[in-house]
Design a protein around this nucleic acid. Sequence first.
DNA 1: TATTCCAATTTGTCATACAACATATAACTA
DNA 2: TAGTTATATGTTGTATGACAAATTGGAATA
Lengths: 243, 243
Amino acid sequence: MDTPFQKIGSDKLLSGKIEESIEVAIRKKQYKAGEKLPTEGQLCKLFGVSRTVVREALRKLSARGLVVIKQGSGAYVNELSSESAIDSINLFLELTDDGSLIFDIIRARQLFEPEIAGQAALNRTAAELDDLAENLAALKASPSEDIEGQTVIDIRFHSLIAKATHNNVVALLMRPIFENMPKVKRSIFAKNKLDVVPHDQNMVLKFHEEIFQAIKNADPREASHAMLAHLKYTEKNFMDSLK
Amino acid sequence: MDTPFQKIGSDKLLSGKIEESIEVAIRKKQYKAGEKLPTEGQLCKLFGVSRTVVREALRKLSARGLVVIKQGSGAYVNELSSESAIDSINLFLELTDDGSLIFDIIRARQLFEPEIAGQAALNRTAAELDDLAENLAALKASPSEDIEGQTVIDIRFHSLIAKATHNNVVALLMRPIFENMPKVKRSIFAKNKLDVVPHDQNMVLKFHEEIFQAIKNADPREASHAMLAHLKYTEKNFMDSLK
DNA sequence: TATTCCAATTTGTCATACAACATATAACTA
DNA sequence: TAGTTATATGTTGTATGACAAATTGGAATA
């Protein structure tokens, strides 16, 4: 029977309480990134619990990417990389994929990336333009049969643009989308003859160059437009491959 | 000294290996959502390790939201909610916030939400229109001093529109943005007199109604336009509060 | 000074015991 | 019989002690 009452100290388990306690300390930056936490033994005394409990709490924190545990050394507050957060999103997308994930990725890109390109055109620095130019050169130099390599370069191109918005939230949220691009690409080339590959590489290069020029020219409308054209082409390519 | 070689069995630790093994089984859907995993004792025999190791592996999986452990009962594959993934993103944003988070949130919304509103205008169902109408009524009925309550309703309005795109990726990625809206709102009203509150509530209501009408009329351009106007107003409101 | 070696510290794993909780079965009561 | 209450069993939670494996820092050595 359900009652209208909420659970109070919802995490009854000791390991949960200790996990939370340490997490709060980290969030309050009482322990800074890279800093060493007390040893397991010290934590046992501090909390008055067994080593079992402390270890399980630390394991949970490490699973969430908050701390890194080094055997023989200690537990350290993680130099927070976004990896665990992104992985978490990607895991969720993969497990809940009912077959629509690839389509959703393609459509999401069309919604978001044109605006991102426009914003990048307004905010990009000279250094970021250099990075983009270097990326174009890499794609040009890539052997046409190396699809995996081209995909890596392609992802980097779009990631660089997202970063050039100078908006951390945008750059972060786009990463799960970019990291799923290989799935789309594999699905395109899986059932296709290899003779279409060089053609595709040239087309991608052409689109990337247009986008780059617009961003270089600080022309948001053109950047947005070029990006949308690029993504529409990718979608058409994908749809054709389904037949 | 770094070597060019990658680590092979990167997770040397037993608990890590077992965690990965169970994770793979779940990803391959050999264990479906809600299903019970073998007991700790059985897993010990299966992997030939101690209970300590098995328990730590299960703890890590539970910290990542893949399994739920119930004392006295067993470990179950989690009906995957997106909560842990979203929490993970929010934690990262909070810990890496250098003061620009609120600004990035505001700008990200201006980039993404107009397009989302446009897409929602194209794809929304009748049921989704009903939900939106209900949400508008709730905002209208909300006591003007209940800012927290209005914020909850506000978040739900924008979440409903994101869902109405029928794009799971879009709906998921917008959630960290929406869940940070209270920070913006608190910052607006923190230094302001309370007499501006009713005015703001009326303005928000007006914008929401415009957006709703456009979505109802299946007019993507107008929906997008109304959404942008709404967000520009919010930004202005926020900027004014900084003085 | 620079290197090697060793001892202390710290985390990793194992084994055992018991407590707390959940579940199914049996016994009991109306 | 139906419903409730004990009871027994299985499962997870916690504690303790022991030893292995890795790291670290200082002592011994060249």
